[in-house]
Computed example of a mutant assay.
Amino acid sequence: MRHTDQILIFDADDTLWENNVVFEQVVQDFLGWLDHPTMNRTELREILDDIERANSAAHGYGSKVFLRSLHDCLEKLRERPATVAERQQILELAKALIDYEVELIPGVTETLAELGARHRLLLLTKGDPEEQQRKIDASGLDHHFRSVHIVAEKHAGTYLRLAEEQALHPERAWMIGNSPKSDINPARRAGMNAVFIPNANTWALEHDEVDPADERVLTLARFPELLDHF
């Protein structure tokens, strides 16, 4: 049975289009370039994850903060400031982020078009406003949404404010995304429903446990499966 006349709130990165796979490739290239004499990639990645976690909390998200984390990681491991040549090399390694073209998840365009005829669609994404807007513009999807919201962080308060601003009834609102930490769990804490669509490339820092007994969380394997429920 389909839910009718609902408010569907969509995440963007790794829900509507691939995103973290590009960052992950840069990370792997960076770790290989480091060629640390005593640490393996797993150990190096743990250090980088800790640095990214701290920088995200202090400075937000996006490619600029990511590059900062790469520089900080290098300097921590080398125990000295990065040289001009090393900074240039990191920029070269991260070139894929600069040249990145939005790659939509299969079925997104058609699914949004059909859902928009039956429901009210909103977009809620976190990150650097300029960078996120650039991706939204490049995606060509913005016309599907009644409103677009770019926020610094997604927590329960973010969803409560959105509900108040948009006069949403939480029991009729569904947050749709790939991140348990940012999409599913905080939306549920705000009293909304959620649709969890896992992405194999989801950033490690967005992982969290989703309550398997929560009947107000719908888990789908593919984006077009939304049409079976809404």
Results as ranks from 00 to 15, higher is better:
Ile184Met: 06
Asn193Leu: 02
Tyr159Thr: 09
Val151Leu: 09
Trp174Ser: 07
Glu164Cys: 00
Val148Cys: 09
Ala173Tyr: 03
Pro186Asp: 04
Val151Lys: 07
Ala152Cys: 01
Met175Tyr: 08
Asn185Ser: 14
Ile184Asp: 06
Ser179Thr: 10
Gly157Ser: 14
Glu153Pro: 01
His155Ser: 10
Ala167Cys: 02
Thr158Gly: 12
Arg172Val: 00
Val195Met: 03
Ile176His: 07
Tyr159His: 05
Ile150Asn: 06
Asn178Ala: 15
Pro198Phe: 12
Glu165Pro: 00
Pro180Cys: 11
Arg172Trp: 00
Leu168Gly: 01
Asp183Leu: 09
Ala163Cys: 14
Ala152Trp: 02
Arg188Ala: 06
Glu153Trp: 10
Val151Asp: 08
Asn178Gly: 12
His169Gln: 09
Leu162Phe: 12
Met192Asp: 07
Ala190Ile: 05
Glu153Met: 10
Arg188Ser: 05
Pro198Trp: 13
Gly177Phe: 02
Met175Ser: 12
Ser182Tyr: 08
Gly191Lys: 11
Gly157Arg: 13
Gly177Ser: 04
Val151Ala: 09
Glu165Asp: 15
Ser179Arg: 04
Ala190Asn: 05
Ala187Phe: 05
Asn185Thr: 15
Val148Gln: 10
Asn178Phe: 08
Arg161Ala: 13
Leu168Arg: 01
Val148Arg: 11
Leu168Asn: 01
Arg188Gly: 04
Gly177Leu: 03
Glu165Thr: 14
Ile184Ser: 06
Val195Arg: 02
Leu168Glu: 03
Arg189Gly: 01
Glu165Lys: 12
Leu162Met: 14
His149Gly: 00
Arg188Leu: 11
Leu162Asn: 04
Ser182Ala: 15
Gly157Asp: 15
Thr158His: 11
Asp183Pro: 08
Arg188Ile: 13
Trp174Asn: 06
Arg172Gln: 14
Asn185Leu: 13
Gly191Trp: 09
Lys154Trp: 03
Pro170Asn: 08
Val148Trp: 00
Ala190Cys: 09
His169Val: 08
Ala167Gly: 05
Pro180Lys: 08
Met192Tyr: 11
Met175Glu: 10
Glu164Pro: 00
Phe196Lys: 05
Gln166Met: 11
Phe196Asn: 05
Ala190Phe: 03
Ala194His: 11
Pro186Gly: 04
Tyr159Val: 06
Glu171Ala: 15
Phe196Arg: 05
Ala163His: 02
Asp183Gly: 10
Thr158Tyr: 10
Arg189Ile: 01
Glu164Thr: 13
Thr158Val: 14
Ala187Glu: 06
Val151Ser: 09
Arg161Phe: 01
Arg161Gly: 03
Met192Lys: 08
Ala156Cys: 04
Leu162Val: 07
Glu165Tyr: 01
Ala190Asp: 04
His169Trp: 00
Glu171Thr: 15
Asn193His: 15
Arg188Pro: 03
Pro198Leu: 12
His149Ser: 07
His149Pro: 00
Val195Thr: 07
Asp183Val: 12
Arg188Val: 13
Leu168Ser: 03
Thr158Glu: 12
Glu164Ser: 12
Arg172Lys: 14
Met192Ile: 10
Asn193Arg: 15
Ala167Leu: 02
Arg189Val: 08
Lys181Glu: 13
Arg188Asn: 05
Ile184Lys: 05
Ala163Ser: 15
Glu165Ile: 02
Trp174Leu: 08
His149Asn: 13
Arg161His: 11
Ala167Val: 06
Tyr159Gly: 05
Gly157Tyr: 03
Lys181Asp: 10
Ile150Pro: 04
Pro180Met: 08
Ala156Thr: 14
Ile150Arg: 04
Ile176Pro: 04
Pro180His: 09
Pro186Trp: 02
Ile184Leu: 08
His149Val: 01
Ala194Lys: 10
Gly177Pro: 03
